[in-house]
Design a protein around this nucleic acid. Structure first.
Length: 277
DNA sequence: CCTTAATCCTGGAAGC
DNA sequence: TGCTTCCAGGATTAAG
């Protein structure tokens, strides 16, 4: 249905983009829609006449880091954002907001039809980390069970709402939160503070396994997600609950239930994810 | 402290 | 066929 880039998709963008653009001279920057850029949007701030030395990720966000002493760009893909390396741009494409031209005439493009994403220009990676990433919780791939347990203890919110809160834990969105809760057989409305340390240890183990499998499969492509090289992912074929309301549970064969939680569609199995404890 | 809803936005799908 | 309506959702903000 949508792009919905969450941690596995953003990690695939990071890897495929790095292969194509790291240390490649950027000759020029075209800003077609300045409103997607936050902070200074001078050519220098956008790495014109410079290069991307490293591409890093925290949660769902990317950093295009210039050479030492040079600027840094924070990229958030939002819902429909994409960052791609292509040989050419369709001139009539209204959704390409920023385009960087490389030395061989190819382009890195930021495209985002729904414009929930954006670009944040900072003078350095340290400034991005201090100004933007510091507000995020630990990355879902590196958080420890003890840390997550401590953070979950602090809220009475439903576990699904807590998992979606990027200030608490960075990286999960609606797809992987539903898949994770199903994998752990946890009812989405369970208060977060009711998870025991043992349950949280299981949760973290399942989360790492789920995200690793999704990354390996290239992420989930529901409608139009592609990595920086234009390739779709294949993990949607392994979804057990997301977008499967009414269909049979892969374990008990009963119908999957759909409910709304924290304003989001939630799909789960009332039999395999019992509302208890 | 908690939840819900509105807001931003487009395009695909469904309904008439 | 063509129009309208609904719906998807990440993050923020305001209201209850």
């Amino acid at each position: 249905m949508f792009a919905v880039p969450e941690l596995p998709e953003v990690e695939n963008v990071r890897r495929t983009l790095a292969l194509r653009i790291v240390n490649r001279p950027i000759c020029a920057v075209e800003i077609r829609r300045a409103s997607v850029i936050h902070g200074p949007h001078t050519p220098r701030a956008l790495l014109a006449d410079s290069a991307v030395a490293r591409v890093e990720r925290h949660g769902k966000q990317l950093a295009l880091i210039g050479p030492s002493g040079q600027p840094c760009l924070g990229i958030h893909l939002g819902m429909t954002g994409s960052l791609r390396h292509t040989s050419s741009i369709a001139q009539q494409d209204q959704h390409v907001h920023v385009a960087w031209r490389l030395d061989d005439g190819s382009w890195m493009i930021f495209r985002d039809p729904r414009r929930f994403g954006g670009i944040w220009a900072f003078p350095s990676f340290q400034a991005l980390q201090a100004g933007r990433w510091a507000k995020l919780g630990p990355d879902a791939l590196s958080i420890t069970p003890a840390d997550l347990h401590r953070r979950l203890q602090r809220t009475r919110q439903a576990i699904k709402a807590a998992l979606l809160d990027q200030h608490l834990l960075a990286g999960l969105g609606n797809i992987y939160a539903d898949e994770l809760l199903f994998a752990c057989r946890l009812w989405p409305l369970t208060p977060a503070c009711r998870l025991s340390l043992a349950q949280t240890q299981q949760l973290v183990r399942a989360m790492r396994r789920l995200l690793a499998r999704a990354i390996r499969a290239g992420g989930s492509t529901l409608r139009d997600y592609v990595n920086a090289q234009g390739q779709p992912g294949g993990f949607q074929l392994q979804h057990r609950v997301y977008n499967r309301a009414g269909q049979p549970c892969t374990i008990c064969k009963g119908p999957l239930t759909r409910l709304t939680l924290a304003g989001r569609t939630t799909v789960c199995c009332p039999r395999c994810q019992p509302n208890s404890r």
